[in-house]
Design a protein around this nucleic acid. Structure first.
Lengths: 144, 144
DNA sequence: CCTTTTTGTTATCAAATGATAACTAACGAG
DNA sequence: CTCGTTAGTTATCATTTGATAACAAAAAGG
């Protein structure tokens, strides 16, 4: 096993993933949302409800900046805060119906692009791809 | 085949890749290099020699901004321009020895983290991983 | 209780990034 | 040769992002 070649394959792979993800998500965020805000919305959409601290950790941004961006998203009517019943320090953040509608549409368009990219793949190919995704997620891209 | 579940697996996977890549590359860029500049340096390191237009395309930034960042990197002594012999409009950009040394060290540290992450994987696991990388790059994350 | 820690906010500032206009020079096609 | 196109530069500006200090309130632990 050539370790250097293996590593280079890994680097090329992550670069390709980044590239493809960019292609699949470009031109779909509304004009009045900044890239950071869109990224936060994606995170909330998948993980909601979330707290400010969780966003701060996962998006690698400071609490003050996270607080600012959430305030802006709240002002735009895309997400809302509610105080956690158990711990009143915590803010439980969710998408508003408008925010959810926006993200649903964004994900629908990404999904369409995804399957467009897979057109031509047989049922067997899809099985192979699914297994490959499972393998890599379990053995390489695991995050705890 | 449940399409929605398949797509969600894809989303979770790309998110994990992004996350792991962030973990593996954090804290290794020198203090006087901005994130965008580091990204450009990575690109040059892998693809050199490159032209300004190529950087502009691949990094999704405008020519004026690309020009500015390359000028800054040149001023820092990390890359250098030379006019293409065939087409005198084109600038051939490469890393300087200092730039190469910097990126070699960065990649070495990423490689160390990569294999650290893979410690515990058997020789057979590595084969499986390599095949999974090949499959996904060919069938899903192909970029032409 | 009282102190420390966690969670979040507000204000402020600096730096990085993105966008555009106006320009030069070299190439390429007719 | 001339004209349109490609490659790159410079200058300028607005916006986004990142960083820090100073604060308040709730919780947790003695």
């Amino acid at each position: 096993m050539d370790k250097t070649a293996f590593f280079q394959k890994f680097v090329a792979f992550t670069t390709a993933v980044h590239q493809v993800k960019h292609e699949m998500t470009k031109d779909l965020k509304p004009a009045d949302i900044t890239p950071v805000q869109y990224s936060i919305l994606e995170y909330i959409a998948v993980q909601q409800p979330v707290t400010l601290s969780e966003i701060s950790d996962c998006q690698h941004m400071s609490m003050p900046n996270t607080s600012r961006e959430i305030r802006k998203l709240t002002e735009k009517g895309l997400c809302e805060k509610s105080t956690d019943a158990q711990d009143q320090r915590k803010q439980s953040i969710r998408l508003t119906p408008e925010g959810k509608a926006m993200m649903d549409e964004a994900f629908a368009r990404i999904e369409a692009r995804f399957f467009h990219r897979l057109q031509g793949a047989s049922e067997g190919d899809l099985k192979t791809i699914e297994q490959a995704l499972d393998v890599l997620q379990a053995k390489v891209f695991h995050t705890e």
